Simulated assay, not measured.
Amino acid sequence: MELHDPYRAPATIPAPPALPRALPEVRAQSQADSDAAEYYSPSTLKMVLLSPTTFGLYPLYWFWRNWQAIKRETGGSQWTWARALFSPIWAYFCFSDLRSAACNRRRDLAFDPALLAVAYFLLNLSTRLPNVGWLLGLFIFVPLLPVNSLLRRYHQDERVDMERMDRFNIWHILVVVAGGLFLLLLFIAMAVTPDR
């Protein structure tokens, strides 16, 4: 009978069986997916419908998602929610960072980021105009469209799946319907109420 010796080296453990290797096409596709940065670029229709019906909250969401992507790509320590909340101040930096990311792939922004940032800032200020001047604020998404278009071209070149960004789920549809009805009632009330 053999006694257990606590000082003896343990017996060798057999190596586990090798895992099956992925097909070369799958490996190449996963590497291509991991190399491309994924920024938030919904369809133009989605931006045009959701921005006015959320009264400008959807552009804040757009900034938040893109600041998250910039932080992920640069490894920065910025507060993405604060930059989205104060987007009129940070818009130039966001547009500039997104433009430089796309320029690495030989794509360029149709307009200067400074011009788009000034337009975004002025549209934000227009919400404080008296009478019907605040209606200009409903078009706050317009300066985002060239940047969004640039990101969509970048995603097409890099073969990033944009289908889930373009998809309308039930919440999007409910927001468009409820916000659209509210805007319609607001316009009717403005038309019926005489100016005083």
Rank of each mutant, 00 (worst) to 15 (best):
P17D: 09
P194Y: 12
H155D: 08
M1V: 10
L85V: 03
L122P: 03
I188N: 07
M47N: 08
S149R: 12
L136N: 11
L57M: 11
R164N: 09
R72Y: 04
P88H: 01
N124T: 11
S43G: 12
R196A: 13
R99D: 07
L122W: 10
S126T: 07
S96W: 09
P146V: 02
F63T: 03
P130W: 02
A22P: 11
S43L: 00
A110L: 05
V132L: 13
Q31T: 11
H4W: 15
L123M: 02
L129I: 06
F95T: 09
P20G: 10
V177P: 00
P14S: 15
L116H: 03
P59E: 09
F63P: 10
S149N: 15
R72T: 03
L122C: 11
M162I: 14
L185R: 11
R164Y: 14
R72S: 02
G56T: 06
M165K: 01
C94Y: 15
Q78F: 08
P130Q: 07
V142W: 10
R65G: 03
D161I: 03
L3Q: 15
E158S: 07
Q68L: 05
R83W: 08
P10K: 07
S77M: 04
A102T: 07
W64R: 04
E158Y: 04
K46I: 01
R167Q: 06
P17S: 14
F168L: 01
Y58C: 02
G56P: 02
T193M: 14
T44E: 12
E73F: 03
L116G: 13
T74R: 06
P130C: 07
V175H: 03
V160Q: 06
A69N: 08
S41M: 12
G137D: 02
T74S: 08
P113G: 09
P88G: 01
E163P: 12
L45Q: 01
R196M: 12
S30E: 15
F187N: 04
F121N: 01
S87L: 05
W134V: 04
S96F: 12
W171L: 04
P24H: 10
E38I: 04
M47C: 07
G75K: 07
P113Q: 07
T74W: 00
P16V: 11
F93N: 12
L115M: 12
H172E: 06
Q156P: 02
F182W: 11
P113S: 08
Y7L: 07
D97Y: 12
I173Y: 04
A178Q: 04
D195Q: 13
A82F: 08
L136R: 09
F95G: 10
